[in-house]
Structure formats: structure tokens, C-alpha cells
Simulated scan of single mutants.
Amino acid sequence: MIHEKTILIVDDEPRTREGIRKTLEAWYAGKNRIQTASSGVEAKEWLASQPADLLITDVRMPEFSGLSLVEAIQHFPSKPAVLIMSGYADFSYAQQAIKLGVVDYLLKPIEKQQLLQTVEKALHIHEQQRRIQAMQEIVDPKLVDIRERREQQVDTPIGEALSYIEAHLGEPITMRELADSVHLNSSYFSVLFKEQVGLNFSEYLMRKRVQRAKELLVQTLLPISEIAGRVGYQTDKYFIKVFKSLEGISPSKYRHTVNEKSS
């Protein structure tokens, strides 16, 4: 599903502002929302109350410059991609813009084709950044801690066990069979696993399976029943129960919520 993007154009020159607006409105033919502001102050207030996917701003404006505007929104909950426009080839402005993570620096007068290509690039970058952020948010923090410690366990029996679990999440895995595969009795394996991993075997396996399920929910359109099978659960009913116990919501609700954030 393609979601409407919001683009905010900021320039104190009405002719430039309206020219860009008309170009983008003609190009997107109502598929995206194009908004304008005549000053940096007005744009800051607008962005404080609603999100935008892309900010196109002139660098030199009275009272509140484009760079001041970009600095002001750095800590906003929802930060847009930014394109800076200028009628001057000023290297110091360009340097500051790069430090602030601006996607591109456009010199006026801006050619129509250059504008459209740069806007498309900026929207794509913003979409990728939101997708990455959404993926980072779904990572189980306990598994992140374990992954960092795992580097010292590569050639140990527990390291081998963790590698096996990673490669066979979609298959039945029992602690006894895993202990046998690394030549340890199950009681000692259980104690050693908890000591070196920080979680007992069953909780670790559950978290790994739910983590893989979250990735599949976000990255694919696979039905819940198929995802359940791919992460080692024989019935989707039991999978949903386990997922809810760990995440607090159902897999379908989770998919909807994360996809909404990243769209």
C-alpha cells in the first residue's frame, strides 16, 4: 500500500514558493500533499504540530533562516528529509547543511527536472530511514545483549548450540537433543546455557522465534499461519498465544502497528 507523502515548501519569495508548489502538484497529480509556509517561524510551528516527509526550504530568510529551521527540528519526534535551496553558491552554507544531514543543496533557479529528481531521491531516502528505524525498534533488547556476548562463545559448546538454534528455528528443537549434539548431559547443558546466555533455554528459544516472526511480519505479506510454521510452531493458535505473551498484542496487530509507523 502506497501512502500519501507530505511535502512542506518554505520560502519568503512568493513566486519561488508557488512555482515549486505548482510543479510538484502537477507531477504528483494529487497523490501527495503539498503544503507551503512563507517563513521559517511559520514552518517550525507547522512541523511542531504535524509530521512531514520532506522539507524544502530556502536557506536565507528574514528572522529565521533555513539552517536555523533545520537545527530547530532535529529533535522533533518525526523529522522530515530536507532539501536546502539558495540563490548563492556559498560553501559555508553547504558545509553546515551537510552536517545537519540535509539530503541535497539546490542552487536557484532550479530546473524542473532537477527538482523532481531530487525530491524523488529525498522521499526515497526518508522512506528507507523510517523502515530502518522501524526494524531497529522491533529488536528484542535481551537478544541484542546476548549477540554481543556471543562473539566470545563461537568455539564453545554453548556457542555451537546458539548457532544451531539460529539455523533451525523452523524445526522442532529440544534441549535434550541440543545437549546431545554438543556432547553435554542435559542437566549440565541447562546450567551452562543459563550461565553463559543469561536466559534459560526455553525463554531464549521463544524470544528467538518471536524475533524472527516479527521480522517476517514486517518484511513480508505472509499469512500468520505460514509465519507460525516458519518459526517452529505447529499451530497458529499456539503461536499467537506465545507472541501475545511476549509482545502484549497479536501478530496481526503488531504488523499493522509497525507498518503504519514506517509508512
Results as ranks from 00 to 15, higher is better:
residue 27 W to S: 10
residue 113 Q to K: 13
residue 10 V to Y: 02
residue 27 W to E: 14
residue 33 R to S: 09
residue 11 D to A: 05
residue 125 I to L: 15
residue 119 V to L: 01
residue 94 A to V: 08
residue 129 Q to Y: 14
residue 38 S to A: 12
residue 113 Q to G: 11
residue 126 H to K: 15
residue 59 V to S: 12
residue 109 P to C: 03
residue 124 H to Q: 13
residue 87 G to V: 05
residue 42 E to I: 12
residue 58 D to Y: 02
residue 116 L to I: 15
residue 123 L to T: 05
residue 131 R to Q: 15
residue 38 S to C: 08
residue 95 Q to T: 10
residue 133 Q to F: 13
residue 37 A to V: 00
residue 86 S to C: 03
residue 136 Q to Y: 09
residue 110 I to Q: 02
residue 43 A to S: 13
residue 97 A to Q: 01
residue 113 Q to E: 13
residue 59 V to K: 06
residue 19 G to N: 04
residue 12 D to Y: 05
residue 20 I to Y: 13
residue 61 M to A: 04
residue 39 S to I: 00
residue 110 I to G: 02
residue 53 D to W: 07
residue 128 Q to E: 09
residue 56 I to Y: 00
residue 32 N to Y: 14
residue 83 L to D: 01
residue 97 A to P: 00
residue 20 I to H: 14
residue 14 P to Q: 06
residue 126 H to V: 02
residue 105 Y to P: 01
residue 78 S to C: 04
residue 6 T to R: 13
residue 130 R to G: 14
residue 63 E to G: 04
residue 20 I to V: 15
residue 110 I to F: 09
residue 90 D to S: 08
residue 40 G to K: 00
residue 49 S to I: 06
residue 24 L to W: 06
residue 18 E to A: 09
residue 15 R to H: 12
residue 50 Q to I: 10
residue 30 G to R: 08
residue 7 I to E: 00
residue 56 I to V: 15
residue 21 R to N: 09
residue 122 A to K: 05
residue 94 A to T: 05
residue 79 K to S: 06
residue 71 E to P: 03
residue 25 E to M: 15
residue 40 G to T: 00
residue 99 K to H: 14
residue 13 E to K: 10
residue 22 K to W: 11
residue 97 A to D: 01
residue 96 Q to V: 02
residue 136 Q to F: 14
residue 72 A to C: 07
residue 65 S to M: 04
residue 40 G to V: 01
residue 31 K to F: 03
residue 116 L to Y: 06
